[in-house]
Amino acid sequence: MTRVGVVLFPGSNCEHDVVEAVRALGGDADLIWHGATDVGPVDAVVLPGGFAHGDYLRPGAIARFSPIMAAIEAFAADGGPVIGICNGFQILTEARLLPGALQKNRGLTFLCMPVELQVCSTRSVLTADLTLGQRLMIPINHFEGNYTCDGETLSMLKDDDRIVLRYVDNPNGSVDGIAGICNAEGNVVGLMPHPERASDLLLGSADGASLVRSLLSAAGGPRPSTAADGMGIRATPAETALTARA
């Protein structure tokens, strides 16, 4: 059975939803405390939504120095699937595992609503089983969800087919309508929408289940070959100690 580790930071609040969604689709899921230094025997890691470390300083700024992050960077470098949802996406950008940053929404308001997404790449572990151009209805729930990056990074994301999901009707001002991106190898994916909140028709949409199912099937299969791309910045022991007591 495919095992998914869901990281629990102080302030995470979507971890049980992810665990439920994975189990409902036939996978196994367990929580990993952020203070752990090992991800354990898992086939995939999910950084769930919420407000890790209270979003103090910036969303994800302190979480990236949590002890578990060094193990997640190593897991990702080894080709292991790593998904960051909402606050998890913000953490992945702060950790430099994904480029760019999430700034405050263009409309100046917190947004909590279902949005329509279009699958723009099927080379990521989250979308490998979907169809290019496929539309999905999945909720967003964020204030800092407006994806931004410099022009050079945007060109690279486009040229390398790393824009995984786009909003059909851009709700937050994200550059190029970006809702989710992946790393060069496609095994690290960050997205603002919450697939776990659309994993059963009882929740209003089951479109998110196709993303979770794709992750489970990718996590159970062979890993992509990876090469260090120099994006990762490891936390020093002193930085790790900063958050170890939290």
């Binding site: 300083l57 910036r58 700024a61 760019g100 910045i233 930085e239």
Partner: peptide, 10 residues
């Protein structure tokens, strides 16, 4: 550079 700001936006 490493912590107090995110150089992408700040």
């Amino acid at each position: 550079r490493r912590f107090l700001t995110n150089p992408v936006i700040e």
